[in-house]
């Protein structure tokens, strides 16, 4: 049935695509898929130097993790992208969907320099972490005092808090920490979602885009919000006393990883590129521009830089990350519970 319908449209489509000659590469081309973050800096620090080394051309796709994953899924039979940078949980999803291959770490000369948690984050050999970040609470230290994740729900504070929506990358980790604070940390996050739901009238908003938060903080709509460390820098420029909380339950966070697409025709080139990105030199430069916290332990940073990033073995070890399998298996349930308790 579908084929018949498709065939009717096909004639026109084929005629039109024939008019456009496919861009045949005169030189080796490596297609990568990355977050849209700081592309100008990446170009200068990573892409252009690499093109010189390999004598190849880099084509870059940008977007957030889920969108790009949806495109990889659609292009599964004939992959467009050779190497993709996604979140740790999405890497497991991609691996389960058969979109990515094992990373041959013997070809990565810098592999030994990585922090242990970055070497094989999902324990399936399908990904390598290139950066990680802490998630904690940014708050107005003149207005409140945060010692625990549960403090955000205190009656005197709740009406000055923005909480990440469960659909964002920061949502589940923040709920997980709240669960720890409430001593009810089941993987279904039921208790923390209910606790947040009970305060939904007071909580200012459940944010979708962290870009809102700086604006809301500046207008004094909010005094506190759980955020990822990579969005921290703009808060420090607002002229308010804003502090990074060190709650007694600890900090949570996330990790971004590199993967190789299944069926990629440029596997070796992709590995060469990954190795370059993981090198001490490149990781240091990215850190000095406050873009990515390094996962390479040979990177040495000044204290001023380190304070704005998630840096060092101790920090790396202390982050309470949600295991990818838990995230994937429970994601649909979290959203369902959330929509029932908070969305209604």
């Amino acid at each position: 049935m579908n084929k018949v319908i498709l065939a009717s449209g096909a004639a026109l489509m084929l005629a039109m695509s024939a008019a456009q000659t496919p861009a045949l590469a005169q030189e080796k081309t490596l297609t990568i898929s990355v977050y849209a973050l700081a592309q100008d800096e990446y170009k200068q620090i990573v892409y252009e130097p690499f093109q010189k080394i390999c004598g190849c051309k880099l084509v870059v796709e940008t977007g957030n993790s889920v969108e790009r994953l949806a495109k990889m899924e659609a292009n599964k039979a004939n992959p467009v992208v050779d190497m993709a940078v996604i979140s740790m949980a999405d890497a497991l999803a991609a691996s389960r969907a058969g979109l990515i291959d094992k990373v041959d770490t013997s070809k990565l000369s810098n592999f030994g320099k990585l922090y242990d948690i970055a070497k094989d984050p999902n324990g399936d050999g399908m990904s390598v972490g290139y950066t990680f970040y802490a998630t904690s609470i940014a708050y107005r230290s003149d207005k409140m005092k945060i010692d625990s994740w549960a403090d955000l729900l205190k009656p005197e504070y709740a009406s000055h808090v923005a909480w990440p929506n469960v659909t964002t990358n920061q949502g589940p980790p923040a709920l997980y920490m709240l669960g720890l604070a409430l001593a009810k940390d089941t993987p279904d996050l039921k208790a923390p979602i209910e606790a947040v739901g009970a305060k939904k009238g007071e909580i200012v908003t459940f944010y979708e885009k962290s870009s809102q938060l700086v604006q809301l903080m500046q207008q004094e709509e909010i005094w506190a919000a759980p955020i990822g460390r990579f969005t921290w820098a703009p808060f420090t420029k607002l002229g308010f006393p804003i502090a990074w909380a060190m709650p007694k339950e600890g900090q949570t966070g996330g990790m971004n990883v590199m993967t190789v697409t299944k069926g990629s025709k440029n596997r070796d080139l992709a590995l060469q590129f990954m190795d370059f990105w993981l090198s001490t030199e490149v990781q240091t430069k990215l850190a000095e521009k406050l873009i990515d916290s390094p996962s390479n332990k040979d990177v040495k940073l000044s204290e001023a830089i380190a304070n704005n990033l998630t840096y060092g073995e101790e920090t790396a070890k202390s982050l309470k990350l949600i295991p990818s399998a838990v995230a994937l298996d429970n994601r649909a349930g979290w959203i369902k519970t959330w929509n029932e308790k908070v969305g209604q």
């Binding site: 973050l37 084509v59 870059v60 957030n64 467009v80 885009k209 870009s211 700086v214 969005t231």
Partner: peptide, 19 residues
């Protein structure tokens, strides 16, 4: 896709993290 983006998509990507 790889190498081809429109301006509003770029803008949204840019302000995913900072506005």
């Amino acid at each position: 896709g790889p190498g081809v983006r429109t301006l509003p998509v770029d803008m949204i990507a840019y302000m995913e993290i900072v506005f």
